[in-house]
Design a protein around this nucleic acid. Sequence first.
DNA 1: ATTCCTCTTACGGAAAACCGTAACTCTATT
DNA 2: AATAGAGTTACGGTTTTCCGTAAGAGGAAT
Lengths: 221, 221
Amino acid sequence: MFKKILIAEDMEDINKGVHTLLTELGVSQIDQVQYCDDAYLKVKKADLDKEPYDLVVSDLSFKVDHRLQTYTSGQALVEKLKEEFPNLKVIVYSVEDRLQAVRTLFNQHNIDAYVCKSRNGLKNLSLAISEIAKGETFLSPEVSNAFSSANELEIDDYDISLLDNLSKGLSQDEISALYRKENISPASLSSIEKRLNKLRIQFNANNAIHLVAIVKDLGLI
Amino acid sequence: MFKKILIAEDMEDINKGVHTLLTELGVSQIDQVQYCDDAYLKVKKADLDKEPYDLVVSDLSFKVDHRLQTYTSGQALVEKLKEEFPNLKVIVYSVEDRLQAVRTLFNQHNIDAYVCKSRNGLKNLSLAISEIAKGETFLSPEVSNAFSSANELEIDDYDISLLDNLSKGLSQDEISALYRKENISPASLSSIEKRLNKLRIQFNANNAIHLVAIVKDLGLI
DNA sequence: ATTCCTCTTACGGAAAACCGTAACTCTATT
DNA sequence: AATAGAGTTACGGTTTTCCGTAAGAGGAAT
């Protein structure tokens, strides 16, 4: 089990909650910071002192305040940490459930676990820790389909067209009529509903508005 | 009229076109760069040599390539230039027509003109130059409503919050419940419907999806 | 030809969004 | 105190979206 852990989390209450959990798990040294820069400095110093951290648990979003930060987000912090200390284990603990963000963190920045803050957040966090201790990675159930093979790159031109038309204000009915006129298949309302449902699941969107907002952020349309 | 002008534009053909126009306008010294950093260095050097530029015409987007740049966008370049050389006149010449971007350039970075690359791009550019020479600012007709439009100024924080929550996938019902909990008024479903209806009319949106897509494009959320 | 599989379409019910109308609250003004 | 006006809320009806189920259409493979 891990002996020395750092928590980076700006919300004091959550920070404390995680601290309690880690204490219960028997971690002997637990340090806490509320700013990304402090996190980096602590890890850096610990490394120089030859007493490196075993694990960092970091949030993604940190409220900005008067203190100017070099690393303005958990993402930036994690990137830097994993770059400079590849052996350091990192758990991202965040409310964020956008699959693309999760994918990026794993693929680009090689994090070891992603845990969603939710009703079972702490439980999953403790699961994550034991998995990592065994050399495994961990993914919260809320975002478990971030890698489920099927959805990876299976967004085709039809999907894009659908999303584009939605974003232009057409109703599903109107899109159906349009596709019938232009001989685009499938054109039935039912198929369009089905496809949009698939996309909603893929992108973890609650509804069509959310879906369009997400794919616009991703630059897909 | 201006005597010494710098063109910052990565596309060679456009760069050349602007050069030709300026020559026709009787500008005696016209320099061209294809990288933001080169632009900054040239302006800096000219200033140190006591032969400063009168005007910079800059694009917004520069393709990234092997040359690592300190200033990776026209926006960053303009910001730096206006900060260090407030007297230097700056025209932004770009295809970008997002109103929010235009507003930011004028309000935050104090540019002197914004010209859209379009059919009449060069004509507007020459108009802009003569306006600036008279001490005026200039705004391309394509984006002329970035400031004039009354409708955009009537959007308050509540509207933004509403749109933001919508884009995050909350239903109108959920937003109502949220506002009740957080004592944000108005919180009733009816009022939320009404406000969204007003926004749909203002932005010429067919439905909520369309509305969110539009305000995202405008950079409002 | 039959089976199996996948894609498309159809349908029906529940939920949410859309839209008009009317009532209620609060404030300012006389 | 009375009234007008703007903002908020309530409510009913229609349309659209959401979601599950099931039937039809077409292809591939024995």
